[in-house]
Amino acid sequence: MQFESSGAAFLGGVRAAWLSVFAYVLFGTYIGIGALAHDFNFSLAWVALSTILVWAGPAQVILISALGAGSPLIEVAIAVGLSGVRLLPMVLSLLPRLKGPQTRARDLVLPAHFTAISMWVESMRLIPTIPVERRVAFCNGIASGYMMSALLATVLGYYLAAKLPNLLTAGLLFLTPMSFLVSITRNSVLLVDRLALALGLVIGPALTYAAVGLDILWAGIAGGTLAYVGHRIREVLR
């Protein structure tokens, strides 16, 4: 895709966001989050601000339900912090692909904050088709498009809260794992990515079941490293 200016690339990103299934998946997910915040008596301004500042669905579900249940603040902070570990390898693998010769470090602050599963998956898929000097604007556009959808849904869910049947709430919570699984499957073209996907699916719940602390982090490091070793072995055999 070619863009005349950064503004055009930003709008192209917003358009790509709304054309992807994630805008609608996020809409559904954040209806659930808005409703959850309402049920636990948070204000609308508070939950809307949490969508902008935290910008990570699982972390917000933990934050709202744990604070609402009266958990000690330090426990809430630790639970949120553990759920956020996944953001580190995502930011680390995305930012170097946005860097051109003209890119300043501060241009990458916003894409780093905007990084979330949805934005990462779509950005990694689409940036190979975008010229390097337009990638930052394009990715900011994708994330802004998603955030608009999420904010609108947060407000809507907050007002709908009392009217949502249990079955629909279950369906909204199911949107996150279902959509992420098929979209990561779509993105995993190389052997190393397919191996990482399969290993993470198996190792993750096994570690959770065995009550290993930091289960997600260890599943990522073990699954990712094994997948990388598999990839290197195949390179050597070629």
Binding site: S93, P177, D193, L195, A196, G200, L207, G220, I221
Partner: peptide, 20 residues
């Protein structure tokens, strides 16, 4: 970066399996 992306993918897979 190949390794980092593999770790990111495995982390997401673990999150998905855990949520399910």
């Amino acid at each position: 970066l190949v390794w980092v992306r593999a770790v990111a993918t495995a982390v997401l897979a673990a999150v998905i399996a855990k949520l399910t």
